[in-house]
Write a protein that binds this DNA or RNA. Structure first.
Lengths: 340, 340
DNA sequence: ACAATTAACTAAACCGATTTAGTTTTATAA
DNA sequence: TTATAAAACTAAATCGGTTTAGTTAATTGT
């Protein structure tokens, strides 16, 4: 079964390529192609399983019906869920999505952006490394449609959909405070991401509201690429803090995982000796010993909103659409903080 | 900053498009373009940040330097990890990857295959729904390069990379048997996937080796789309089995998750009353209460091998390459089966 | 001193669609 | 009975590259 092209159909049916193209793009009526000819073309196409070459179509239209999604890492559950929902929503709206992982490398992020533009994507959804303002601003300047998700550049006026990191972490910290914990460690990433900054501010704000002094020794900032090795000393030092911390807030699900693993290795009782809360979660966090109280992100909502905003902008329908969204997270209380 | 095209470069430098194209594709020397002209072209291109339109290039070359990856669901950790490794490996070999999820729908899988062919992917890696033999055979017949992963069609002679499901599950079951468990339930999916079939055979084979009678009541086959609702009765019935089962083997990580959740809800003590083993795992399975003994799949190896085979075939280097691989899994013993 | 090479390029076809600007034929209006 | 409009098409340009088949001018061989 050979591939069949527009030209083949045209020749076999003795009509022009134009006619075939118009009919197969549902523009037969408005271009007054007779019903009979339309029927012949459609039937022949269906029968021979014709499908247009997207490269050719994209080239000639200058469109590709494709959007790009650039994320730090497709293997991370958070982003893979985002990817899943983005794909679903985009498909429903008639778009294909091109994924790629930047691996937190700003240079690679730039390359991916360019590579996707080459491929004529019509818009981008980017969870940026946030060290790539240059490329983001250049997109902005070219009026290329894009939406930042999860991470945005506060200094740049762009579309974005993020979670309320400040209040998410504040609520988590307050939860510990309400349960009487006072020496609260915070294990997070080295600053760089706005989201991470906001989470620290949320932590601090909660302390302030409870009139508790903020102490730098309680903050452990690990390197994104090396946290697995750094967790041991971070935990060790927190446990050395005058009589040890009584609780720890982790600012990402993977820090929680390695952190809890380390606490177990050190035979620290959770939550009796040290309570823990996690920002973001993993599928099995409710099964963990103890089930981990976590700040849950509205993953599906982030994805859907981003796609909506993007495609609205691509199709230029509703330019007045509010395009900066801060979504709420939700504290799922389980057992890792104990009770009163 | 306007986009710059081949034509622009040619005009500005007073050379032909041909020259520019040849030079930028590293074919300058073999086509005797003078060193000086080459330098001018390369510099101009770099300076103006020229990047070729992949659609045009793909169209004219009939190549796209792209491979497709079709998986059931990008949100599933197993497949998202596969995706991550495939992306990495492919990029290293100069290929971009196009992902898409079939959601276990054979019809959609077919559409995705066709859609990817339209986009001129040069090869496909497919974790098939396994109800789509038609499309797979049609690829085979067209001599289109592809590799099946995770799931394959035993009745069709294709490239594949799968894990040894039979021995993986046999080892898991044997582990329970060696620890003295005798009434072993098996919670799995409705048959359809070869992998699932193999896992059942592995379970049976272990029983046979230990001279234990196989009992159908101990096998619970849930629907892939509805297992969350079906798990309750499955577990309930296993617990009703003459004096209850003393252990359960779960054939996927998500069945393990919902199963353990249900066991906890029913206050069944794991592993004292019921031991459990999981085929495949989730990131936090070592933190779960109890840490779950799991059959670990060589995810990275699956991905790398598949990409290697595929690209070898695309580039037609080493056609004698062994292209059917069954990789070994590994039983990671944790605490969910207790000890002697 | 003249044919044969070689170096250094280029014109134009092509990939497979889409789309603009017509053309031809038939029907309708004045 | 024309001019006009509508119906039913189509030729050819275009998208932005790649590639084949030359061309021209300088160099070499004999």
């Amino acid at each position: 079964m050979k591939k069949v092209f527009l030209k083949d159909i045209a020749e076999k049916l003795n009509v022009s390529k134009t006619a075939v193209s118009l009919v197969l793009n549902n523009k037969g009526d408005e271009n007054k192609i007779s019903q009979e000819t339309q029927k012949r073309i459609i039937e022949f196409a269906k029968e021979h399983n014709y499908v247009p070459n997207q490269l050719a179509r994209g080239l000639s239209r200058g469109k590709s019906e494709t959007i790009g999604l650039i994320i730090p890492n497709i293997s991370d559950t958070f982003y893979s869920k985002i990817a899943g929902y983005v794909e679903l929503k985009a498909k429903n709206l008639g778009y294909t999505v091109l994924f790629s992982s930047s691996n937190e490398d700003p240079k690679k992020e730039g390359e991916l952006i360019r590579s996707m533009l080459n491929r004529q994507v019509e818009g981008l959804i980017i969870a940026s490394t946030q060290q790539n303002l240059k490329d983001i601003q250049s997109l902005k300047q070219d009026k290329f449609p894009f939406v930042l998700i999860d991470r945005h550049y506060p200094e740049s006026d762009t579309n974005y959909v993020v979670v309320d990191n400040f209040n998410g972490l504040k609520t988590a910290t307050e939860h510990l405070l309400q349960l009487g914990r006072r020496k609260i460690g915070f294990i997070t990433l080295k600053p760089g991401l706005e989201a991470i900054k906001q989470r620290l501010l949320g932590y601090q704000s909660a302390l302030t509201d409870f009139d508790i002094e903020y102490k730098e020794e309680l903050i452990k900032e690990l390197s994104p690429g090396n946290y697995e090795n750094e967790i041991e000393s971070a935990i060790r030092e927190l446990l050395k803090f005058p009589n040890s911390v009584d609780s720890i807030v982790f600012s990402t699900h993977y820090l929680t995982s390695v952190g809890l693993r380390e606490l177990k290795r050190k035979n620290v009782k959770v939550p009796q000796e040290v309570a823990i809360v996690s920002f973001d979660e993993l599928t099995a966090f409710d099964l963990v010993d103890p089930p981990i109280t976590s700040v849950i992100q509205p993953v599906k909502d982030i994805a859907n909103t981003a796609v909506d905003i993007l495609i609205n902008e691509i199709e230029g329908k509703d330019s007045a659409m509010d395009n900066k969204r801060i979504l709420n997270s939700k504290l799922e209380i389980r057992k890792s903080c104990g009770t009163f």
